[in-house]
Write a protein that binds this DNA or RNA. Structure first.
Lengths: 201, 201
DNA sequence: ACCTGAACACCGTTCAAGT
DNA sequence: ACCTGAACACCGTTCAAGT
C-alpha cells in the first residue's frame, strides 16, 4: 500500500478551464498578499469571476492553492541556489541565497507556517518544494563549512529553522524597519562579540 | 479625546461570576494548549460548563481571553528580570532571561503572533504586558552592553525581534528536537566563526 | 471535462429574556 | 450583576444538475 499522495494542482488542457485556473491563481495571489494565507476563498472565486465550485475543482484544498500560488517563486529560489553555487566565495553564495530564501518563504502572512509544516509532513502539497529548498540550503552550507567559513556543527535542519524564523519576522514585523534582514545579519554574526567567553544557555 | 482603551478582563466580585470566570480561563488554557490561539470558543464555553454568552460577558474579544490566560506567565517573566538583574554577570542574566522569555511567549501556537502585534498596537489587551517585557529586556540588554559583553548596536526592538523569532520556532518546530534553544544559541554566538571577515548581506 | 450555485455545516457574535 | 440559549451572519465545503 502506498501512502496517500497530496493533490498537486495542474493547469487544465481545455481552454476555458485554463483561463479560469489562471484567473483564480491571480486572484489568490492578490488576496494572500492582502489578507494572508487564510484569505476568503469565496472572495477569491468572486474576484476571479468564477463560482466557488470551480475554485474547488481546480484546488480541492487551501494548501493546494497556496502551493500553486507559490510554486514559481520557490522554483526560482532553487534555480538561484545553482547560480550562486558558481560563486568563488561559498559564504557569499550562502548568505545571498539565505536572504533570497527569507524573501521567498514569506511573500504573505501565513506562508512560513505552511511551509514549515510541509517540510515535515509528506502528505502536503508543498512538501516537495520544501525538500528541494532544504537540499539546496544543505549544499551551499556544506560548501561553506568545507572552507571553514561556517561553524561545522550547524545542520541543514537548523539552517532551515533560521530561515523560517527570519521569514516569520518578515511576515509579522511592523512596517518601516527591515527587521528580517537585521535578524538574518545577527544570526550570521552573532549577538555576542568574539572576545567574550562562549555563551552558556 | 482619549483613544479607545482595550478591554482588560477583570475577575468578578460576585461568587457565581468568579467561579465561571475561573472555569472559562482554565478551559481556555487547556484548549489553547491543544489547538492554539484560534481554539473554538464554543468548545471552551462547553468545557467550562457555561453558555456562550457567559464567555462573551467576561471576555468580549478573543484577544481579551488570550491576555487573561497569559497574564500570570508574563508577570512572572517580568519578575524574573528583576531577579536576574541581581546576577553578577549581566550577560548570564540576559541569556537566562531570554531563554525564559522564549518559553513564556510561546506557550501555545499563535501566541507569539498576538504578542508581536500587541507590541506595536496600543489598542490591544496584551499591549501593556508587551511593553513591560520590552523594557525588562532593554534594561538587561543595556547592562550587558555597558560591560561590553553584547554588541552595542543591538537595539531593544531588535532584541524583541530575536525573542519572537525564537518563540515562533518553538511553537512550530517538529517535536523531538529542541529547535528553539538551538536557534537562540545560534543568535547569540553567530553562525560565522570569529576568524572570518564580517558577513556582507 | 468543466461550470454553476443551492444546500448543508460549523462557528463566531449579539441580544432579549430571565434570575 | 450575572446567566441562558435562540437567532443571525459568515464562510468553508459538497454535490446534483447542467454545458
Amino acid at each position: 500500500m502506498t501512502s496517500a499522495e497530496p493533490y498537486i494542482a495542474q493547469r487544465p488542457k481545455r481552454a476555458d478551464g485554463r483561463r479560469n485556473y489562471d484567473a483564480i491563481l491571480a486572484a489568490a495571489r492578490k488576496a494572500f498578499a492582502a489578507s494572508g494565507s487564510d484569505a476568503s476563498l469565496e472572495d477569491i472565486a468572486g474576484q476571479a469571476g468564477v463560482a466557488i465550485g470551480t475554485l474547488y475543482r481546480h484546488f480541492p484544498t487551501r494548501a493546494s492553492l497556496v502551493e500553486a500560488a507559490t510554486r514559481d517563486g520557490l522554483d526560482t529560489l532553487v534555480a538561484e541556489a545553482r547560480e550562486y553555487a558558481q560563486d568563488s566565495d561559498p559564504l557569499d553564495a550562502l548568505t545571498h541565497w539565505m536572504k533570497s530564501a527569507v524573501a521567498h518563504i514569506s511573500t504573505f502572512r501565513g506562508l512560513v507556517g505552511i511551509l514549515t509544516e510541509a517540510m515535515y509532513d509528506e502528505g502536503t502539497p508543498s512538501h516537495v518544494a520544501c525538500t528541494a529548498m532544504h537540499s539546496c540550503g544543505a549544499d551551499l552550507l556544506r560548501a561553506a563549512q568545507e572552507r571553514g567559513q561556517v561553524r561545522d556543527d550547524l545542520t541543514p535542519d537548523e539552517l532551515f529553522d533560521l530561515l523560517t524564523a527570519a521569514g516569520w519576522v518578515r511576515e509579522n514585523s511592523a512596517p518601516g524597519r527591515d527587521a528580517a534582514t537585521r535578524v538574518l545579519q545577527l544570526m550570521l554574526e552573532g549577538v555576542v562579540p568574539p572576545g567574550q567567553d562562549s555563551v552558556r544557555i
